[in-house]
Design a protein around this nucleic acid. Structure first.
Length: 269
DNA sequence: CCACCGTCCTGGCTGC
DNA sequence: TGCAGCCAGGACGGTG
């Protein structure tokens, strides 16, 4: 499940692979629903010949800046990117493929087909409702407290709300809440400023640690390993029978807004 | 206006 | 052992 750290590493990977300066020779989009705009035909035609200038990230979106406009990608739940050479076999779920002018190609492998792609003149409208980037200098603990405390939902749901804060998904939300000692069902507006300030710090710590960990553990072909929930950089085991990494009691789980939170009744309140 | 729930998908795990 | 059914979840649209 690509959250901010995974997408940030995809960005760095594309830069390392020398994508800036390359252009698209042709594009295949065999699962039409992946392309959100424009039409699949215009997406494919519009990308042909377009040159990549740079690769940026906003929240969980990759923004591939082109000589004109942007190719914006979101990996959904199971999407990943791989730069492949001419001799490499096509991956089983590579529904969207960007052929480059140097003979290589970028495959977007996406078993569950929840990934999205846009070709737009200006991506800013796509990012309009998204909250602050965690690593922006302006995203202080004070700003975080202010944005969170106006919400009445369980803190777990608030952390997943991309309009409050960009980039945190289910896995990192649980990790940060455990470290901050806050139980996921606690209503956001009833949490003290001091505890929220601590949570702000833990979110940054968890995200930064994961960005580094992924960068230090690439796959054989140089791709960043796209996590599953059981990766050993995670403190929490997301399965039945897991125990708290801090105190050892059995972990609890509960669904908030359709997403399962794993937490410790002893360490979190 | 805000909170919450259903929807999209399919691999892989659980449990009978 | 085999297989049916359930679970996972990011973002969005619809509903209450």
């Amino acid at each position: 499940m690509p959250e901010l750290p995974e997408v940030e590493n995809l960005r760095r990977y594309l830069i390392r692979e020398g994508l800036p300066g390359r252009s698209f020779a042709s594009v295949t989009a065999s699962w039409a629903k992946t392309v959100k705009s424009p039409s699949v035909e215009d997406f494919v035609l519009g990308l042909r010949g377009r040159t990549v200038r740079d690769v940026h990230r906003r929240a969980k979106y990759l923004n591939v800046e082109l000589d004109r406009g942007s190719l914006v990608l979101h990996m959904g739940m199971t999407g990943s990117l791989a730069v492949r050479g001419q001799g490499d076999e096509r991956q089983r779920f590579a529904h969207t493929i960007f052929d480059l002018d140097d003979g290589r190609r970028i495959e977007m492998n996406d078993p569950r087909k929840w990934a999205s792609a846009w070709l737009v003149d200006d991506p800013s409208s796509l990012f309009e409702g998204i909250g602050p980037e965690p690593f922006d200098a302006s995203f202080t603990a004070g700003v975080f407290v202010e944005r969170v405390r106006i919400k009445r939902s369980p803190i777990k749901s608030v952390l997943l709300d991309q309009s409050v804060l960009a980039g945190v998904g289910n896995i990192y939300a649980d990790e940060a809440l455990l470290r901050a000692g806050i139980t996921p069902g606690r209503r956001a507006h009833r949490i003290s400023a001091a505890r929220l300030e601590a949570l702000h710090g833990e979110i940054l710590t968890v995200l930064a640690h994961s960005i580094d960990f992924i960068e230090e553990h690439p796959m054989d072909d140089g791709r960043p390993f796209v996590t599953d929930a059981h990766d050993d950089r995670m403190a929490i085991t997301r399965a039945k029978g897991g125990s708290c990494p801090v105190c050892g009691v059995a972990m609890s789980s509960k669904v908030f807004g359709g997403r399962t939170a794993y937490f410790c009744r002893q360490c979190q309140s």
